[in-house]
Simulated assay, not measured.
Amino acid sequence: MTSAFTDVYTANADYVRDFRLAGLQPVAARGIALVTCMDSRIEPLATLGLQPGDAKILRNAGARVTDDTLRTLVLAVYMLGVERVLVLPHTRCKMASVAGDAEVHDAIYSTYGVDTRSLEFHTDNDQIGALRHDLGRIRHHPLLPDGLAVEGAVYDVDTGAVTPVDA
């Protein structure tokens, strides 16, 4: 039986033959949570010199700190060994290059006829301003501990460089 996923199931069979991650614990061995974009140009572990098991990786469009991101960070801090959080958006991000959610809604509707106005995409063309806002959401969340190390940086998709953002 063939499906739209035959290629990935076949690749998984190869992966299973050389699987070496059995026995990893569910905690973040290096105590880090990374909030980054879903963009496939980002290799979060390699970018930061991490290995499987070192970090909790949270990915979404635009690397935004949404309510779901905060929920996940609360769990990661109290149950999965996270002691520090890095928020890492990237250059040339589609979610930071549009005028706002309305532009995305309009583009989807005009191309596909799907009304997405019930969703909030969290677009913001002031990427550094959005990053600073999101860092504040983490730092001031009432369920996250005071003193949790929280920083922001921007990943350059053209060079691989990570540049800290003063926030």
Results as ranks from 00 to 15, higher is better:
T10Y: 09
L45I: 12
L45E: 12
E83P: 08
Y109G: 14
G100I: 00
H105L: 01
G31W: 13
F5P: 08
R41V: 06
G129V: 15
A28F: 12
N12W: 12
L48H: 07
S3H: 11
L73I: 06
P52M: 01
K56L: 15
L48P: 04
K56E: 12
A102N: 10
F19H: 04
V77L: 10
D39V: 00
D54H: 01
V8Q: 12
V87M: 11
A63E: 00
V82T: 05
L148C: 06
A149C: 02
Y109V: 03
Q51R: 15
V35S: 13
R117M: 14
V82E: 06
R84I: 04
L45F: 10
L80S: 10
V35I: 06
Y112R: 00
A161P: 13
T91G: 02
P44S: 14
D106P: 08
R71W: 03
A107D: 07
L86A: 06
R92Q: 02
P145M: 05
T111K: 15
T91N: 13
P52G: 08
L34P: 10
H141R: 10
L119N: 07
T69W: 01
I138P: 00
L86P: 04
G152V: 00
D7G: 02
L135D: 04
E83S: 11
T116A: 12
S40W: 05
K56Y: 01
A61C: 09
G160R: 06
D124I: 00
H105G: 00
V157S: 14
L131K: 06
A11H: 01
C37V: 11
R20W: 04
A61D: 02
Q127Y: 12
K94M: 09
H105T: 08
L70E: 04
A167T: 11
L58F: 14
D115F: 08
I42Y: 02
I32K: 10
G100K: 00
V162I: 11
D101C: 14
I108C: 01
G100V: 07
T72G: 04
V162L: 03
Y78N: 05
T10V: 11
T69F: 07
R132S: 13
L73E: 14
I57H: 11
G81A: 09
K56A: 15
T10G: 15
A61L: 13
E151W: 02
G49P: 04
T36K: 14
I138V: 13
D39M: 00
H140Y: 15
H105V: 05
E120N: 11
P44R: 08
P142R: 09
P52F: 05
L70W: 01
R30S: 02
D126Y: 05
I108L: 09
A61G: 05
T66S: 12
L88W: 00
R64H: 06
A33R: 05
L21Q: 02
E151Q: 11
P145K: 13
C93K: 03
A61W: 09
E151P: 06
K56M: 15
T6K: 10
A33Y: 12
T163F: 09
A76V: 02
G53R: 12
T111W: 13
P52I: 04
H90L: 05
G147R: 14
T6F: 11
L80T: 13
Y78W: 13
Y15S: 13
L148S: 03
D166F: 14
A130E: 11
S40I: 08
G113I: 08
M1A: 03
H141D: 02
A130T: 06
R92D: 14
Y155T: 02
V104N: 04
A33C: 02
V82P: 00
A167D: 15
N125V: 01
S3Q: 09
